[in-house]
């Protein structure tokens, strides 16, 4: 903030478009616009409302310059849900933005209400993209960025440990990274992370299934325990097991070959075929047939047949691991 105060204040562009649905990033982008408007004019008034709540004509009222020409920032949330009339009104205004007023349009970025987003781009709005972060690498990059933002560095091991322990929620990751940076000195390493965080925040049914298909009995049981401890619904674990078994069975029944051709035939993505091909090496046809009975049985068990779904899952994992040996 001190750097911004030293340089002459830069007024934000009169039109800003925040595209994407990653909440934390969207919030930060909006806040950045508000901050820079306030830096230019501390009296700036901020109005926040949902685009769907705008009645006809209300937008014109909001964007008309006030008598004393104080700045104003108008934040329109959920613009993708806006009706046709509202969208047109926004675009109309975008062609001739008023002096001293900053309009921030927050749009989820999908296909819904795409015309509005495209129109704003064409009207030279300042675009900030905040797409949802789904890949592990992107999340790791986010953590590194967060730590760097507070003037520190973090090792790759520490990033992995932090992601394991905290999970995938960006808000929590940002908070954890900030806290770690505040509590420690020097480069953040794995030991520093382990000191404050332990356990696993997110274990999915898929990671259990992966261990089972690889025949790692101890690892599978451990992962399953983590999953149950974290409250992963039994049904999801059972579904993941069933999906893994039938994928391997389908791939091995197809007789192998080019994964891209198989992917088209079996209607699944190539990476899944490749993974299943690797997993299918330890499996025989008989074992797969009995594994399919096991997963069908456990699917009923977790839906109320067994008195204890957790026990049923454990038994299924053991049965699957021994089916693999055959």
């Amino acid at each position: 903030m001190s750097a911004a105060a030293a340089s002459p204040p830069v007024r934000p562009q009169p039109l800003c478009l925040v595209l994407g649905d990653e909440d934390l990033l969207v919030e930060r982008a909006v806040q950045a616009v508000v901050d820079s408007a306030r830096a230019a004019d501390p009296e700036t008034e901020v109005r926040t409302l949902r685009a769907t709540d705008l009645a006809a004509g209300e937008l014109a009222e909001l964007v008309s310059p006030s008598l004393f020409a104080e700045g104003r920032v108008i934040v329109l949330h959920a613009a993708h849900e806006a009706g046709k009339d509202t969208a047109e009104a926004i675009l109309d205004y975008a062609r001739t933005p008023a002096e001293g007023i900053v309009l921030v349009v927050v749009h989820a970025g999908g296909n819904r209400g795409k015309a509005l987003a495209d129109g704003l781009r064409k009207a030279d709005a300042a675009v900030t993209e905040c797409p949802r972060i789904t890949r592990f690498e992107d999340r790791a990059a986010f953590v590194r960025e967060e730590v760097r933002g507070s003037g520190r560095r973090i090792t790759a091991d520490a990033v992995t440990a932090l992601l394991d322990a905290v999970g995938s929620d960006l808000r929590e990751l940002a908070a954890a990274a900030g806290q770690l940076a505040g509590d420690t000195t020097g480069t953040l390493d794995e030991a520093a992370v382990r000191r404050y965080h332990r356990g696993r925040a997110e274990v999915t049914g898929f990671s259990v299934a992966e261990k089972v298909m690889a025949g790692d009995r101890a690892g599978a049981l451990e992962t399953l325990r983590w999953a149950l401890q974290l409250g992963v619904p039994h049904v999801l674990v059972a579904d993941a097991l069933a999906d893994a078994v039938r994928t391997v069975a389908r791939v091995s029944a197809s007789g192998g070959g080019d994964p891209y051709r198989l992917a088209g035939q079996l209607g699944m993505p190539p990476w899944k075929v490749k993974k299943a091909t690797a997993q299918s090496r330890g499996w025989q046809a008989d074992g797969l047939a009995s594994a399919m009975q096991v997963v069908a049985g456990v699917n009923a068990d977790v839906k109320g047949v067994a008195a204890d779904g957790g026990y049923a899952l454990e038994r299924a994992v053991l049965a699957l691991c021994s089916a693999r040996r055959r």
């Binding site: 069933a242 069908a296 009923a300």
Partner: peptide
């Protein structure tokens, strides 16, 4: 018992 149809039928 609410087992997913595909899973049940494939097992059968």
């Amino acid at each position: 018992l609410n087992v997913k149809p595909r899973i049940a039928v494939e097992a059968m």
